[in-house]
């Protein structure tokens, strides 16, 4: 175990001298990419994803049905994490809430990545007036705080997970588009793009086959980091009552619901939901940082 410990402490894990069986070899390469902390984070994310996928089958109680006689129970073998102000099992609500807490950010991240990349790549390819026009539109979006823009979107199209997520994605697009544009612009001016242009290959093909794969790392890294922001922002929207609607379970909504209980001396619901958000976001951010940093630095290795 000593060699493993040194790998946690040191940044450069030593090369393993002897040949390892395939599974162990895979673990080694994973450790090199993520480090032990990263693997732990991946484990956390895996648990959350599992909860999101299978949570509804694993819950000991119906997360939406409570009992007036069972309000604000402490933790016990029956109710692992106690019950909330409506007598609903907190553990069951956390499990069930994982799904909405992940689906929302997933919609945000995918919409942001697709729209942001499309705008950035179009701006870079056409340049000139198109670039300037897209730039100005993004500047206008920049002027609004992202949460305010999302609230505006929800106010127009009505509350709900999908509208809230898309409204938030609109607010995120300028940030991601700006980063992708700057990276794509550098690629655009490299000789290989000029060479492809000279060979009579059309702009769309060049953008998709040449430029996109070379900015993919940035898109991916940006997405993992956006995911963390999106969980927090969507939780905020749910907290404000604009995202997911009660009685459905959602971590952000649970913090909001726990507000009154908090004042009455029952912090469990808000605390556990908040903890779930913090741990998930931190794990995601760490993995993103690690993979992004690695991929960007190891680019020449390929």
């Amino acid at each position: 175990m000593t060699s493993n410990e040194s790998a946690v402490l040191g940044t450069q894990p030593a090369a393993t001298p002897q040949r390892l069986p395939a599974a162990a070899g895979r673990l080694t390469s994973l450790r090199r990419r993520l480090g032990w902390v990263g693997i732990a984070c991946a484990g956390i994310v895996a648990v959350v994803v599992l909860a999101a996928l299978a949570g509804q089958f694993l819950v000991p109680y119906d997360p939406t049905v409570g009992s007036v006689t069972q309000r604000h129970l402490g933790y016990s073998a029956e109710h692992l994490l106690g019950t909330d102000q409506a007598g609903r099992d907190i553990f069951s609500r956390l499990l069930a809430g994982a799904r909405t807490s992940l689906i929302g950010p997933l919609i945000v991240v995918i919409t942001t990545a697709v729209a942001g990349s499309a705008l950035a790549l179009a701006a870079v390819w056409f340049g000139g007036k198109t670039d300037a026009f897209i730039g100005r539109v993004l500047d206008v979006l920049f002027a609004f705080p992202s949460l305010l823009l999302a609230i505006l979107g929800v106010a127009i199209f009505g509350p709900g997970i999908v509208t809230a997520s898309i409204a938030l994605a609109v607010a995120y697009v300028p940030y991601s588009a700006r980063v992708i544009r700057s990276v794509a612009l550098r690629e655009r001016n490299l000789p290989y793009v000029k060479a492809a242009e000279l060979q009579g290959i059309n702009g769309l093909t060049i953008t998709l086959r040449h430029v996109l794969p070379n900015v993919w790392t940035q898109i991916l890294t940006g997405s993992t980091i956006n995911f963390g922001y999106a969980i927090v922002d969507l939780a905020a929207l749910s907290f404000l009552g604009l995202g997911i609607q009660p009685p459905a379970a959602d971590w952000g909504l649970m913090i909001s619901n726990g507000q009154e209980s908090l004042q009455q001396g029952f912090p469990e619901q808000s605390l556990y939901a908040g903890l779930c958000i913090v741990v998930t976001v931190a794990a995601m951010a760490y993995i993103g940082e690690r993979l992004g940093g690695r991929a960007a630095a190891g680019r020449s290795k390929q």
């Binding site: 290989y192 000029k194 086959r209």
Partner: peptide, 10 residues
Amino acid sequence: DPNGSLNRRL
């Protein structure tokens, strides 16, 4: 420069 004129990922 062939390093620059060929796409490093293709």
